[in-house]
Amino acid sequence: MQKIDLSETGLRAMNKMLHGQSEHTNQTTWEIVNPKGSHAIACGLDAPIEVTVKGSTGYYCAGMNQQATVNIHGSAGPGTGENIMSGKIVIEGDASQYLGATGHGGMIVVKGNASSRCGISMKGVNIVVQGNVGHMSAFMGQSGNLVVCGDAGDALGDSCYEARFFIRGEVKSLGADCEKKEMREEHLALLQQLLDEAGIDADPTEFTRYGSARTLYNFDVDNAGAY
């Protein structure tokens, strides 16, 4: 295992070391100590390595991630996993606002709660939150799945496209064009698969599915006066 003390190495040198890992690196396990809420830790990784951050992180940790697994043993700041393409991010604590914004693929797991705008404009990422999510979560979500084992705040899935939302607890309010949907066999199977992948023990039948009512897809001439 490679160990980096961020307070000694510095952010740029550390990220450069991580960026230096190739597809076939044999240094596959990394540990970062003393993160102290620094920004942009382990951003832009593109190798099949596992990075564990011992402590809480600031803005944009593991942003643009590809292939790598990033474990955060603490809480994560705003914009964690922004534009994740693949790989996995596991946050042991809570996540701040706009977790996984615009994420294209991969998985983000939060063991605590996620704040507002979780999965905003998600484009294929799967996000599994063991606790609650805040308001405006999955705003304009286009693709991918948001699984919430607790409650969701105001305006869930506002103006969403084809992203799916599975919520076990209560939804404070639904956003424009987001509606409750039927939970069919294929959804139960998908949800079970997501929960298994996230390592979270929950019964898929306790969840409700939400998604787009698809009424905002096409221009309605009755609304012409609004422009």
Partner: peptide
């Protein structure tokens, strides 16, 4: 405004931290 501002406070490792 950020967690960074709190990291050197005594006992922060065991504090209840929330947004």
């Amino acid at each position: 405004s950020e967690y960074r501002a709190l990291v050197n406070l005594p006992g922060i490792e065991d504090a209840r931290v929330w947004e």
